[in-house]
C-alpha cells in the first residue's frame, strides 16, 4: 500500500465517521426550517426554508434565559466538581492509606443507583434546603452526581504519572496543596479538559432533575424547555420548534470543543515532560 492509498483510505474513514455523527444533526437543521405539513416530508434535502421556528421559540418562552441558566448550571458544575475532584483524586492516587479501595468503590456506588429511584429523596432534600426552584438546587445534585466520574477519571490519570515527579518536592517539604498546584495541575490539562467537557455536557443535558426541581420557566434549563415545548394541542408535537431549539443548544457545545481542543492537544507537549 502506498502513501496515497493510505491517506485516501484514512480520509474516507474520516468522512464516514463525520457523516454518521453529523447526519442526524444535519437532518435536525433541515427539519428546523420546515413548518406545518412540510414536517411530514421525509426528504433528506432541504425542501423549504422558514425562519419561523427560530423566532417562535424565543417568543413563546424565555428561551434566551433558559440557555443562560444552562450555561450557569453547567459551568458551576464543572468548576465545582473539578475543584473537589482534583484534590480528592490526588489523595486517592498519590497517597497510600488504608481503605482506599473501599472508598473508591463507595464513591462509585453513587453512580449505581438509578436516577428515577433517588429522585423523590433528592426532591425532599432540595426542598428542605430551601433550594427548590432555584439554580443552586440544580447545581448541587448535578455536581454530586458527576463527582464519582470526575474523581475516578482524574485518579486514573494521576496514577499513571511517574513517581519521581513529586518525590523531590515531597523531600523538599512542599505542602500537598503546592504539589497539586505546581506539579500536577500543569500535567493534568488534557484529562481535566476532557472530564470537564464531559461533565459540562452531562450537566447541560440533564433532564430529570431539571424538570423535577424547578417550577417556573425562568429557572428552567434548556432540555426541560425543549421537552416542554408544545404544539397547539395536547397531542401535537411542535417538531419545527424542537429541532430549531436543539440546533441552537448544540452550537455552544461545538464552539466549546473548538475552543478547548487546543488544550487537549497540549497534552502532547505535557507528555514530553515526563520522559
Amino acid at each position: 500500500m502506498n502513501r496515497q492509498m493510505k491517506s485516501i483510505l484514512f480520509y474516507s474513514l474520516v468522512v464516514v465517521v463525520v457523516i454518521f455523527s453529523v447526519f442526524p444533526f444535519y437532518y435536525a437543521i433541515v427539519t428546523s426550517f420546515r413548518s406545518g405539513q412540510e414536517l411530514f416530508n421525509p426528504s433528506v434535502f432541504p425542501t423549504s426554508f422558514t425562519m419561523g421556528n427560530y423566532f417562535s421559540i424565543f417568543k413563546e418562552q424565555p428561551f434566551g434565559l433558559n440557555i443562560l441558566n444552562s450555561v450557569i448550571v453547567a459551568t458551576s458544575v464543572v468548576v465545582l466538581s473539578l475543584i473537589i475532584a482534583v484534590t480528592a483524586s490526588y489523595a486517592l492516587a498519590r497517597i497510600h492509606f488504608r481503605g482506599r479501595g473501599l472508598l473508591l468503590m463507595t464513591i462509585l456506588s453513587v453512580s449505581m443507583f438509578p436516577q428515577v429511584a433517588i429522585l423523590s429523596g433528592m426532591y425532599e432534600l432540595i426542598r428542605s434546603m430551601g433550594l427548590y426552584n432555584s439554580l443552586p438546587g440544580l447545581i448541587i445534585p448535578n455536581t454530586v452526581l458527576t463527582l464519582p466520574f470526575t474523581v475516578w477519571v482524574l485518579t486514573t490519570f494521576m496514577k499513571e504519572l511517574p513517581k519521581e515527579l513529586e518525590e523531590a518536592a515531597v523531600v523538599d517539604g512542599a505542602s500537598p496543596l503546592t504539589i497539586v498546584r505546581r506539579i500536577f495541575l500543569p500535567l493534568m490539562w488534557p484529562a481535566m479538559v476532557t472530564t470537564g467537557l464531559l461533565a459540562f455536557i452531562g450537566a447541560w443535558n440533564e433532564f430529570l432533575f431539571a424538570l423535577t426541581f424547578t417550577l417556573s420557566n425562568e429557572v428552567r434549563t434548556v432540555p426541560v424547555a425543549i421537552a416542554l415545548m408544545s404544539g397547539a394541542t395536547e397531542y401535537e408535537l411542535p417538531w419545527g420548534n424542537i429541532m430549531a431549539a436543539s440546533v441552537l443548544v448544540t452550537v455552544p457545545i461545538v464552539v466549546l470543543v473548538l475552543v478547548f481542543q487546543r488544550k487537549i492537544v497540549a497534552g502532547l507537549t505535557a507528555g514530553a515532560v515526563k520522559g
Partner: peptide, 21 residues
C-alpha cells in the same frame, strides 16, 4: 402559570412528586 409537560404521563409523574411531598 406553571408550564407542565405536554405528555400526560409525565404530567402525572410530576404532580405525584409534588403532591406526595
Amino acid at each position: 402559570f406553571f408550564a407542565a409537560p405536554a405528555s400526560s404521563t409525565e404530567q402525572l409523574a410530576l404532580y405525584q412528586q409534588i403532591l406526595s411531598s
